[in-house]
Computed example of a mutant assay.
Amino acid sequence: MTPVQRDLARHALGLDGRRKESYRNYFVTGEGGTDHPHWLAMVEAGYATRRSGSILTGGDDFFRLTRAGADLALDPGESLNTVEFSPVQPQKDTTA
């Protein structure tokens, strides 16, 4: 994730340096917007999903971060809202 993409991801999560927990997970931008190519690259990398524009978004695309993308956007001491992202469960040891 590039520094610009990380800034966009933090904005999508509502993390502004004062909050310690995300409170949303969306970003709306359309073709021709300077942010749009960055979001398309995040979709390609598996860091976000894209829903094509609708009347509700004024025709612009609606992006949401995946868990992988959201985790990369966090600073130390920050967390993701459990309404948007379920808590990560510890992996069970299957080698026994």
Rank of each mutant, 00 (worst) to 15 (best):
S54A: 10
G14D: 11
L65T: 09
R6G: 01
D35L: 06
D61K: 11
G17C: 14
A12R: 02
L74E: 01
G30E: 06
H36Y: 11
H36I: 05
L15N: 13
V43E: 07
A45K: 10
E21S: 05
L15H: 03
A45T: 02
Y47C: 04
F63P: 10
F85G: 08
D7T: 15
Y47D: 07
G30A: 09
H38V: 08
T66D: 07
R24G: 05
A45G: 02
S86M: 10
L72H: 00
A73S: 08
K92R: 03
A12L: 05
P37L: 08
T2D: 14
R19S: 15
A70H: 12
T66A: 11
G46C: 01
G58I: 12
L80E: 01
Q89W: 06
V28F: 02
R51I: 09
F27Y: 15
A41I: 00
S22M: 06
L74C: 01
N25V: 00
P90W: 04
A73G: 14
K20I: 09
L74T: 02
M42G: 05
A96H: 09
G46N: 04
A12V: 00
D61L: 04
D93H: 04
V88P: 07
G59K: 01
D35V: 10
I55Q: 12
A68D: 11
Q5Y: 07
P76A: 13
M1N: 03
A45M: 04
Q89H: 09
R10E: 11
V4Y: 08
